[in-house]
Design a protein around this nucleic acid. Structure first.
Lengths: 194, 194
DNA sequence: GTTCTATTATACCGAACGGTATAATGTTTG
DNA sequence: CAAACATTATACCGTTCGGTATAATAGAAC
């Protein structure tokens, strides 16, 4: 009986789980293959290197996430709707794949020349650009945002990340409910439209 | 001529710098002592272990930071003032010691059982408790906060961290100016008092 | 049944890891 | 000057690291 690509998927799963909980440098290739029930040459056959495994994990999960963000930004002139959609995509992704969001959070907050950070940087930059572009467009439709674009972007991203982080630590799904989005949006837009 | 405790300070400095840019697991003891211009036994003489070095770094910087946060929370019933003071402490600390804030950011966003994260957890929890207690007290003085305490805490912390992160990446000090604090406070309190 | 190809297991590599035993230093104290 | 001390350098420990050479295995095609 051949496991075929089963082992590859198992390696991707275990890699994500371990990287998210102990960091890229905190996990050894031996840990990963042991968790996946295979041996090292199998892993190097599929991914070429430890970094290659990380890159494929990022490509899969971060790629999806960014696609959904881009879809959510299809009506940027509707600020309230896009706000909701953005938050919804983030919360849904965090609920569906908490480990990806842990990994993403750990990589986002790095500033130096860490290998793993460099691999994630293109995705992080793209994500930031989508949010920033939304607030830039929004500023041209709601004059009172003008001059606050950067602050709005930072506040939005920071709030969403902190909220998801609280969910990941507690496991309490009510933290990332639609109701939370409504409350956040209300607070956020009241501040803007003042 | 004796360098005396000079080497210890140099080790603390280099440790902070390297840990903040490449992460605890991404830095070797050889890297640290090489940067500090000493040898490994010197480092193990002072700190006992690589983790001991991290703990002393955290004790020094995080201890100061938390003390200042506690001072800033001395008048919790004055919401606007305390908001300003909290943000001011964070921004000033980030300006004075950006490397500490990078290190803190990288450690805060971890969820698993990483060694470095466990060393930082007491400080992170204490910090969260101070902010949370402020919003709890504030809720008893401003009824419209009631029920939003957690959300306010998350939003505040997330926004501050994202703002500082943007400053650390760009180096643009205007991002963490007093003017930014005023804008953030206005947006924040308008949302709350609605 | 044999050849071909893709995948896996065994066993191992040199380098780097965190950490240390030993002893030589320089400085302080008597 | 000599004893006591804190600090440092040399040299090395066993282990783990990321990565690989080699070959056994299994299924597909003929």
């Amino acid at each position: 009986m051949t496991d075929n690509k089963d082992n590859k998927q198992e390696l991707l799963r275990c890699g994500l789980r371990l990287f998210s909980s102990r960091g890229f440098d905190g996990v050894s290739t031996a840990d990963i293959v042991s968790a996946a029930g295979v041996t090292k040459p199998t892993m190097y056959h599929y991914f070429g290197s430890k970094e290659g495994l990380l890159e494929e994990i990022l490509h899969n999960h971060y790629g999806n996430f960014i696609s959904e963000l881009e879809n959510a930004a299809s009506l940027p002139e509707d600020i309230a709707l896009t706000f909701f959609r953005f938050a919804k995509v983030c919360f849904d992704t965090a609920r569906r794949s908490p480990e990806f969001f842990m990994l993403r959070a750990g990589l986002m907050m790095r500033v130096g020349q860490d290998t793993a950070y460099l691999a994630a940087k293109p995705y992080i930059d793209r994500e930031s650009a989508i949010i920033k572009q939304f607030f830039d467009t929004a500023a041209s439709h709601a004059g009172n945002i003008k001059g606050k674009e950067t602050m709005c972007t930072l506040s939005f991203v920071g709030t969403i990340n902190a909220t998801i982080s609280a969910y990941l630590q507690s496991g309490d799904e009510s933290i990332i409910s639609d109701e939370t989005i409504y409350k956040l949006r209300q607070q956020f837009l009241y501040g803007i439209y003042s």
